[in-house]
Amino acid sequence: MRYAMAIDTKKCVGCSDCVVACQTENNVPIGYCRDWVIEATTGTYPDLSLEFRSERCNHCSNAPCVRCCPTEASHVVNGGIVLVDHNECIGCKACIESCPYDARFVHPEGYVDKCTFCIHRVEKGENPACVNVCPTKCMYFGDTDDSNSEISKILKKRKWKTLIPEAGTDPNIYYLI
């Protein structure tokens, strides 16, 4: 099993609903976030193009944050979800430095926090909160090992990219382009 997310940049409007839904679902404190939205404009008026990207932890298959963690607080669970065990994390922040996507932050309570792929929902067979709320329905979540899953199908059908593949982390968030 290999959980992944695909986000359709052709539909995303950059509304940030995914950010606030994550905040309320997961009690992320004000001032912090597990996901964020990037707006990239290229060109010169009026020949322009614009891409919105909702970004979060890529749950990398080759996760430097897990490798560099001295305590095993950062670990990988079934389905490839990368998690942080709050009671094992000492807050050394090595994992923060190791993440090329800047996906982690120090929770005000001291431990390091980040996107969990909403494992508490996924375990119940629900979609992550951000996926569930997105008004443009531009996010897909599922198992890429299962060739019949919606996400596998859409990745087969559409062109996509991942972020900084050169960093060698083997990310699992796909952007449909």
Partner: peptide, 21 residues
């Protein structure tokens, strides 16, 4: 011109490692 900006989130020294983790 290439303009890349953070629409929302992450603009926090606690979150952006390049802002002093």
């Amino acid at each position: 011109m290439i303009e890349e900006l953070i629409v929302s989130g992450r603009m926090n020294p606690e979150i952006d490692p390049h802002l002093h983790a």
